[in-house]
Simulated assay, not measured.
Amino acid sequence: MSASRESTFLSRRSVLALGGAAGAAGVVSTVLASAPAWASPLPANGRPVLRADHDRVSDDLRALEVATDVTIGVVALPGGRAADRRSDRRAFRYRAADLFPMCSLFKPLAAAALVRARGYDDAYWSTPIPFTDADVVRDSAVLSTMRPQQATPEQLADAAIRYSDNTAGNLLLRELGGPAAITAFAGELGATHTRLDRWEPDLNEARPGDERDTTTPDDIAALYSALMLEDAAGVLASSRLREWMLRNTTSGARMRAGLTPPYELADKTGGGEYGVVNDAGVLWRPGTEPLTLVILTRTDRPDAVRDNEVVAEVTRLVVGR
Rank of each mutant, 00 (worst) to 15 (best):
H54C: 01
L196N: 03
P261A: 14
A141M: 09
S251Q: 02
L99M: 03
L176R: 11
G272K: 08
T68E: 06
V115C: 01
V294A: 07
G281N: 13
A3G: 04
L143V: 11
A22M: 07
D267H: 09
A312R: 07
A17S: 09
R301H: 12
A76E: 05
R85L: 02
N170H: 08
T288H: 01
P130H: 03
T250M: 15
A39V: 12
M255P: 01
D210T: 11
D303W: 04
V305L: 12
R90V: 08
R12D: 03
R85Q: 13
L109Y: 03
R198A: 06
D303G: 05
D60L: 14
S225A: 14
L64A: 13
A67L: 05
Y263F: 15
I72Q: 04
R195Y: 01
A35P: 01
V49L: 15
L189D: 05
P208Y: 10
W38P: 02
L203P: 04
R116C: 00
P108E: 01
R147P: 00
L50R: 15
V277H: 00
D98L: 11
W284R: 15
A96N: 09
M146L: 14
A232I: 05
E65Y: 06
A266Y: 04
D84Y: 02
L172C: 05
Q155Y: 00
L77R: 12
R285C: 03
T71A: 09
L172M: 13
P43C: 10
G272N: 07
A191R: 10
T127E: 09
A226F: 02
D133M: 06
R51V: 13
Y124A: 02
E200Q: 13
L293M: 09
P43W: 08
E264V: 09
L229Q: 13
M245F: 08
Y163R: 14
L64H: 11
S251E: 02
T68W: 07
R138S: 10
R207C: 02
T260C: 01
D213L: 07
V74I: 12
A186H: 07
K268T: 00
F92M: 09
R47N: 07
R56C: 00
G178F: 05
H193W: 02
P43L: 12
L172I: 08
P179R: 06
L265H: 07
L105N: 10
L229S: 03
S144L: 06
V310S: 05
E289R: 12
R90N: 07
L18V: 14
L64T: 14
D307N: 15
A186T: 09
R212D: 06
L283V: 14
T216L: 05
M146I: 12
L241C: 03
I220K: 00
V235F: 00
T68C: 15
D279N: 13
T214H: 07
R51G: 05
G187Q: 15
D219Y: 05
L241Y: 00
V70D: 00
P286I: 09
